[in-house]
Design a protein around this nucleic acid. Structure first.
Length: 348
DNA sequence: AAGATAACCAACCGCCGACAA
DNA sequence: TTTGTCGGCGGTTGGTTATCT
């Protein structure tokens, strides 16, 4: 049984929005809000548009505080990192980049960022690879892992970070990663079956994303010296700080994350500190370099040759993150040697 | 200058999950 | 439990602009 169309397609306008339509929509929403019903909105607003179209136009273009234009290096890095961790879940990635829309980021990734990484890779092909390449003995092509590594290296100059690094990988303008609601990455969802987060599954088959809720700067109970910890780890749970507050929130099942759930703007204004560390840990595998190098070396696919298999992006980017943790101090990922399970962790 | 090609990006489409009846 | 509706998401399309030949 097919689904009824959301609107009478014969009587709705399609194509680019005119300034008049824009102002009508903007005016209406600013006055009355969406009313929680996009389908009914165009009629009320006097627009001959599909409700979905109105919603998209509002979210991607008319909404206040939308940022257009060039992406910064930091934004690039964040996109790469999140792409590596959660894949093409643009709405989630967008929620971490205030002012950017999922559509924007998706377009940017598909048209520029991926190519940017490729270009960097081809430039650096004359240099020795940071990884052994068992599959290609001559002129080994780069994998996406190394692409991202190259990216991190090339932009590292602006972040003279070093291991002890409280140096922040994010630009001063970057806001904290907001709490990822539970629903985000439920490991038992069918969506995630094809989702990269499944790569972080533990041997035990547990892989929900663990998330350490950011704590306020003045919360001295955090055992990371004020760093907040985001863990994509093995167990859905909520751990308490000594003061009884819960600074670690884990997310299991539930509905999909919504951008408004992320609430990054309100969150930003709530006094969370902005000096963040970004941390990736693969648990035991990441404790020493060889683990990751082996991981790299054992990978049978995902190298880029003359015709880069872009479908391996995600896989490669993910592995890169683990690899790059050990090969460069100027990436965003640090190792938590205390972890015994594979975890994807963000400190901030 | 003109046509061809590439790059960009706004918008559309269809699927999915949540929710209510 | 089933069915219908809606919001939301991600993939894709197609029009426009920029660049190349």
């Amino acid at each position: 049984m097919g689904r009824a169309p959301c609107c009478d397609k014969a009587n709705v306008k399609k194509g680019p929005w005119s300034p008049e339509e824009d102002s009508k929509l903007k005016e209406y929403i600013e006055k009355f809000g969406t009313g929680g019903n996009w389908i009914a909105l165009p009629q009320k607003a006097g627009l001959k548009r599909c409700g979905k179209s109105c919603r998209l136009r509002w979210l991607n273009y008319l909404r206040p505080n939308i940022k257009h234009g060039e992406f910064s290096d930091e934004e690039d890095r964040i996109i790469c990192t999140l792409f590596a961790s959660i894949g093409s879940r643009w709405s989630i990635i967008a929620a971490q980049l205030p002012g950017r829309t999922d559509n924007d980021i998706k377009n940017y990734w598909n048209t520029k960022l991926r190519k940017k990484l490729m270009a960097m890779a081809s430039q650096s092909q004359r240099k020795p690879l940071p990884f052994p390449s068992p599959h290609h003995h001559q002129s080994p092509p780069l994998s996406y892992q190394s692409l991202l590594s190259i990216y991190n290296d090339s932009s590292a100059a602006s972040y003279p970070c070093c291991p002890a690094a409280t140096a922040k990988p994010f630009s001063p303008g970057f806001e904290p990663i907001s709490p990822i609601p539970s629903n985000i990455l439920a490991n038992n969802s069918s969506t995630l079956a094809t989702n990269p987060s499944s790569l972080f599954q533990t041997q035990e088959g547990l892989s929900p994303l663990q998330y350490h809720h950011p704590v306020k700067e003045n919360n001295n109970t955090n055992n990371n010296n004020g760093s907040n910890l985001l863990v994509f780890g093995s167990e859905a749970s909520c751990s308490s700080n000594s003061d009884g507050s819960c600074s670690q929130i884990s997310y299991g099942g539930g509905r999909e994350i919504k951008q408004e759930d992320m609430g990054f703007q309100g969150y930003i204004s709530n006094g969370y500190e902005k000096n963040h560390k970004f941390m990736l840990s693969y648990g035991n595998n990441s404790v020493n370099g060889s683990g990751n190098l082996n991981q790299w070396a054992e990978k049978a696919t995902g190298y880029f040759g003359e015709t880069p298999p872009l479908e391996y992006d995600l896989e490669d980017v993910k592995q890169l993150i683990s690899s790059s943790s050990n090969n460069s101090c100027n990436n965003n990922f640090l190792i938590d040697e205390n972890k015994t399970q594979e975890k994807f962790m963000y400190y901030y």
